[in-house]
């Protein structure tokens, strides 16, 4: 293959990564923005979504699409429930103290990972894609499913943006983010908002995982990379900024896709991580964010 088509292929692969990454990182960013806590277990909610998707789609017989759609609806709801319980039982009692929540979410990370290993096992298992046609480009055929992942992610991002900016729920969330105490004084049930945001954040990660699982298989350790990449995206995009998160996800996903086609993936990760650490050191508000209040 020549350089041009090769680059196009790398870019398409990168866009699929970006699409999934944007959803996952958006969940992390939402939780950080509204609740001011860092959720280290975010990657495990992603993994849980993928593992549940496998369980649901194998339990339902018939056309693969039926099982997949069921997984796309049920898995995020279950993950949201788990996150809601975790928030209610643990984080609320810690009063959202930043260091305490980090330690507690590290604990959740281990618990979820170990339970997945015990009940799901160490194997990587595939989920059948709901649609199976290839789009023929002049140079190579490309999976139609991958393109629909990009589309689905874009739609979900727009919906989230509309909810945040155009609805009452979004207004309440933004008010809580802006000033927790004033919001409470105006009668906003801050605790319920927090529980909801934590659940929605986890659900976004789970949706992303269900979308990616027909492409890359479900595995109990699959939460590690998305966690680190989401951190990277959220930091580059500016903590708590939705637009920055999406732009950064596209940037990171594309460069990750392109760099790892042409160079060693380990080297790509080293460079990306180092660059982001330096961004955080020298420009803590992120590349697109505004200075912290």
């Amino acid at each position: 293959m020549h350089f041009g088509p090769h680059l196009l292929l790398a870019a398409l692969e990168g866009l699929v990564t970006s699409a999934v990454l944007a959803l996952t990182a958006l969940g992390l960013s939402l939780v950080f923005g509204v609740m001011r806590i860092v959720n280290v277990a975010h990657g495990e909610f992603f993994m849980l979504g993928a593992v549940l998707a496998w369980a649901i789609s194998t339990a339902i017989s018939g056309h693969p699409a039926v099982g997949f759609v069921a997984a796309l609806v049920i898995a995020p709801l279950l993950v949201g429930l788990v996150a809601f319980l975790a928030e209610w039982l643990v984080l609320r009692r810690l009063n959202y103290n930043p260091e305490g929540t980090i330690v507690a979410t590290i604990g959740m990370l281990y618990i979820i990972q170990q339970l997945a290993l015990t009940f799901y096992g160490p194997e990587a298992r595939p989920v059948e894609p709901p649609l199976n046609y290839r789009i023929l480009l002049p140079w190579f055929g490309y999976s139609g499913y991958k393109l629909s992942v990009i589309a689905a992610s874009a739609v979900l991002l727009v919906i989230t943006w509309l909810v945040l900016t155009r609805t009452k729920i979004g207004l309440i969330m933004r008010a809580t983010q802006y000033d927790r105490e004033t919001a409470q004084a105006f009668g906003i049930p801050v605790e319920r908002v927090y529980a909801g945001v934590f659940a929605i954040g986890a659900m976004l990660a789970a949706i992303a995982a269900v979308l990616i699982v027909p492409i890359s298989q479900a595995h109990y350790l699959m939460g590690q990379d998305p966690l680190l990449l989401s951190f990277i995206v959220v930091i580059i995009g500016g903590l708590g900024s939705l637009r920055g998160t999406v732009v950064a996800a596209i940037l990171i996903g594309l460069s990750d896709g392109i760099v790892s086609v042409f160079f060693s993936p380990t080297l790509a990760k080293i460079i990306a991580t180092l660059v982001v650490a330096m961004v955080l050191v020298f420009r803590p508000q992120g590349l697109f964010g505004t200075a912290a209040r």
């Binding site: 305490g100 330690v103 604990g107 281990y110 618990i111």
Partner: peptide, 19 residues
């Protein structure tokens, strides 16, 4: 073999009850 489970539970119980 679920030793990570114990680590996880220990971390959560510690921050909740014995900070």
């Amino acid at each position: 073999s679920a030793y990570l489970l114990i680590v996880g539970v220990a971390l959560i119980l510690l921050v909740l009850f014995f900070p």
